[in-house]
Design a protein around this nucleic acid. Structure first.
Lengths: 288, 288
DNA sequence: TAGTTTAGATGATTTAAACTCATCTACAAG
DNA sequence: CTTGTAGATGAGTTTAAATCATCTAAACTA
């Protein structure tokens, strides 16, 4: 590429293209935030360099010559293609677009969005929910899944589970009385279930007095526990902020690890600086 | 066009595109006649401006990121389109390409090509023969035709005809002896015939002793006249240089105007400076 | 393995392109 | 006829682009 045309000024071509498209040096100057003088100089220099006339000058009106028309079309097409790609890249470079589960969005992302944006005033965060594979290259999907399925490098949080209750309620008598426990049954049946059995064993409980009430989103179980002064078995990730806010409390029970995790498929492919900063931030926040 | 990307340096994009396409800052520097330092600065500045990483740096090797790949494709496509158009325009700006009849090429253009190029050292002339309509925008067709068909502004020479003989031969006795006269019968039957009748009348000759020998190109008649020490009835344009070179001579006969002419269809559409200079030169040369 | 070569990174300085300012012309508008 | 305005041009200023000098670290070679 760039044989004879190596020395042709791209700035001049840009000025020419704008003037050609709008039929006016003045309007070109406005579009490019220059003076009409600059446009005039660029075009004259370009005409000398190329040894052609690109415009007819009719008093103070201009019109394109045949050569000018042909060059204008090519430069318009070429610059439009470049400009579109730049817009896409720049948009990606100044915002973080994340899609995730409703529970993660509600319990983690949305509550901490402000914190992220304050720490990164040059980046805006856009959150959506949904599980479809998004074809746009710049949307970061935070998925909930089986740790044995996700690539190690993609996992941002391995989930632990515990029982939590409304703030202020008396610790339950695990052995003596019937207990209602809210929990989750995932719509996606291929996912490992919440590790309630492992939790019972770890805490030396036989669970025969526990009545389970299941929802299809962790969010609903948590909300119901808070509303009904009850108990919920859910992830420590989702309950973390609620603990801090004294909306939920934890008892003497110990949390258990699970085979469930949050992960970002092909995490390494998100290479914009804002994506990298976001991913570093979310991973640190989840695991500190 | 040019929203957020107005301030992005096109020089930097050019450097990036070259480095991306060749996988090397060093090769990009060579292609663009810059130092590798300049390329490195351009790319770093571009990455800062766009807030993305375009290359992975692996020691002293580089490879494109996903974003880099996408931007590289768009900029390659865009710049290629621009470069192709520039090449075409610059070629047109530094050469004159003419297509014309064999006779006009042989008798006028080729003999004076050197004169034109010496007067215009920055322009090269390329001559071809043929009558097909050429779709390329920058080839100037000099056509031979009927003056009533051509646009006035397109006519570069209105033809006159006369009889010429080999240099040194005795003037013919128009009334006493049989005369062989070479002339032309155009392949294109729609053209007016050479105005022999009008010439006879203007010169007070009845022509009953003249035997015509016809060729389908004026060039052939002229050559035959010189070869056989004979007479040819042809255009003053084609014979002009031969007269000056004492290869042909004119007698006391008077030339006659004709309805034939040389013309350039859509002459005004040739707007490169070299085309304009050529057309001005040829018109002056033919009519002085 | 040690020495040499080489591609890219970085900061400082220099150069040249790009830009504005001031003034002008000539046409359009009132 | 006067005023307004788009483009042209030369001079001066500013800034982007380039080079220079030096560095690092990886690749290559003996």
């Amino acid at each position: 590429m760039w044989g004879l045309s190596l020395q042709v000024s791209l700035q001049a071509l840009k000025a020419f293209e704008s003037a050609a498209r709008q039929g006016s040096f003045k309007l070109a100057a406005e579009e490019l935030s220059l003076t009409p003088t600059a446009i005039s100089h660029h075009i004259s220099n370009l005409e000398s360099r190329l040894n052609v006339n690109l415009f007819h000058r009719l008093g103070r009106r201009i019109s394109l010559t045949g050569t000018g028309i042909r060059l204008a079309k090519a430069t318009s097409d070429g610059f439009r293609k470049i400009d579109s790609a730049l817009e896409e890249v720049m948009k990606a470079g100044s915002s973080v677009r994340v899609t995730t589960t409703s529970s993660f969005a509600a319990m983690v992302l949305i509550p901490s969005q402000h914190e992220f944006e304050q720490a990164n005033p040059d980046i805006s965060m856009e959150i959506s929910t949904g599980e479809s594979v998004d074809s746009q290259s710049y949307i970061i999907p935070i998925r909930f899944g089986d740790v044995s399925v996700a690539e190690d490098a993609d996992v941002i949080k391995s989930e632990s589970f515990n029982v939590f209750g409304t703030y202020g309620m008396a610790p339950p008598s695990w052995s003596n009385e019937p207990i209602t426990l809210f929990t989750t049954e995932w719509k996606n049946q291929s996912l490992p279930a919440p590790p309630l059995a492992a939790w019972l064993e770890k805490n030396g409980l036989d669970g025969s007095n526990i009545k389970l009430k299941k929802f299809d989103q962790e969010l609903f179980g948590i909300q119901q526990a808070m509303t009904e002064n009850g108990l919920v078995f859910c992830s420590t990730t989702l309950s973390k902020r609620l603990l801090k806010s004294n909306l939920l409390q934890q008892f003497e029970t110990r949390s258990v690890k699970s085979d469930l995790c949050y992960y970002v498929p092909n995490k390494h492919s998100f290479e914009t600086r804002s994506a990298i900063r976001f991913l570093n931030w979310i991973e640190y926040m989840l695991n500190q």
